[in-house]
Simulated assay, not measured.
Amino acid sequence: MKNSIPGTDRLELDLAAEPSDRDNVTDWALAQFQDRYGPEVTKDGVWEYTYGVMHAPDWRERYRHDLQRKLPRVPLADDFEAFRAAGRELIDLHVGYEAVEEYPLACLVDGEPDEGKADPAAYRIASKMRWGGGHGHRNEDRSVLVVNDRCRLVGIPPEAHDYTVSGRSPLHWAVESLRVKHDKASGIVDDPNGWHDWAGEPFNLIRHLRCLVTVSVETARIVASLPPSLPND
C-alpha cells in the first residue's frame, strides 16, 4: 500500500512495487489502519481485510474501469472486522480449493449414478468438456456439465456461476483449459487426462470439478454477506 488519496477514506495499493522479503503491508499502511480501527489491527489483518474488500460488489462496480489502468484503491470501510473475517475465509477457500468438501453433484455414467466404479475411460476428456443442452450459447444448460459422451455432472446450482475471475467462473475456466490440444507445428499433444492429479485415478477429475463448484458457491455466499465497503462520499 502506497499513499492515501487526499480528501478521501481510501488508500492506494501499489502492485508494481519491486518484490522483496519485506512484508507486503508497509508500516505506514498499518499505521493508517490502526489510526482508524485501533492498535489491535495487524499486518495479516490488513491483508485479509484487503482481500475481503476486493470481493465486495460495490467496490468492484465502482472501480471496474479504473482497475484496468490505475492502482487499486482500498477504502477504509465502517466495518473492518466483517471484511477481515470474510477475507480470511476467502483466502483459506481459494488457496486450499483442492481440499474443500466436494459439492454433491450427481455423476452419471451411461445414464446411471456412478462414484468411480466405471472403467477409467468413462471419465476421460475426449476433446473438450461442454455444457448440457443444445448447440449454441442460448441453448446451453449450465446446470449440466458434459465430460464426454458417457459421463456428465448434473445439478450445478446457478450460484456456481456468480463468482467470476476475469469474466469466467472457476468451472468455466476448467471447461476452457482442460481440453486436449494439438500443436501442429511441433506435433506436441497437451492432454489433461495424463496430468498427475488424475492420470492414475481418472475419477479425480470429477472430484476436482465438484471442488470448484464448492469454491464458487461458498465464495458467492461470503460475498453476499458483505456490508457496503465504500464510505459515503
Rank of each mutant, 00 (worst) to 15 (best):
K2P: 01
I5W: 04
P6K: 11
G7M: 07
T8H: 07
R10S: 13
L13W: 13
A17S: 13
R22W: 12
R22C: 05
V25K: 13
D27V: 14
D27T: 05
D27I: 05
A29R: 03
A31M: 07
A31L: 12
Q34A: 10
Y37E: 09
G38H: 03
V41D: 09
K43P: 12
K43A: 11
D44H: 12
Y49R: 15
H55G: 02
P57Y: 09
R60H: 04
H65I: 09
Q68Y: 09
R69W: 05
K70V: 02
P72M: 10
V74S: 05
V74L: 14
P75M: 11
P75G: 08
L76T: 02
L76K: 04
D79W: 06
R84F: 14
A85P: 00
L90M: 12
H94D: 01
H94Q: 12
G96T: 07
P104G: 14
A106Q: 05
D114E: 02
A118W: 10
I125A: 10
K128R: 13
M129C: 08
G133W: 11
G134W: 14
G136Q: 15
G136E: 10
G136F: 15
E140L: 15
V144H: 03
L145M: 13
V147D: 04
V147C: 05
C151T: 15
P157Q: 09
E159F: 00
H161K: 02
D162Q: 11
S166Q: 03
G167H: 12
P170A: 14
V175P: 01
E176N: 04
S177P: 01
L178A: 07
R179Q: 15
V180M: 07
V180G: 11
H182R: 04
H182Q: 09
D183T: 08
K184C: 01
A185K: 15
V189A: 06
N193W: 08
N193H: 07
N193S: 07
D197T: 06
W198V: 01
G200D: 13
P202I: 13
F203D: 03
R207E: 00
L209D: 00
R210H: 08
C211M: 01
V213H: 00
T214D: 01
S216P: 08
V217K: 11
E218L: 01
E218H: 06
T219I: 07
T219W: 04
A220V: 09
V223I: 12
A224W: 07
S225P: 01
P231S: 14
N232V: 06
N232A: 14
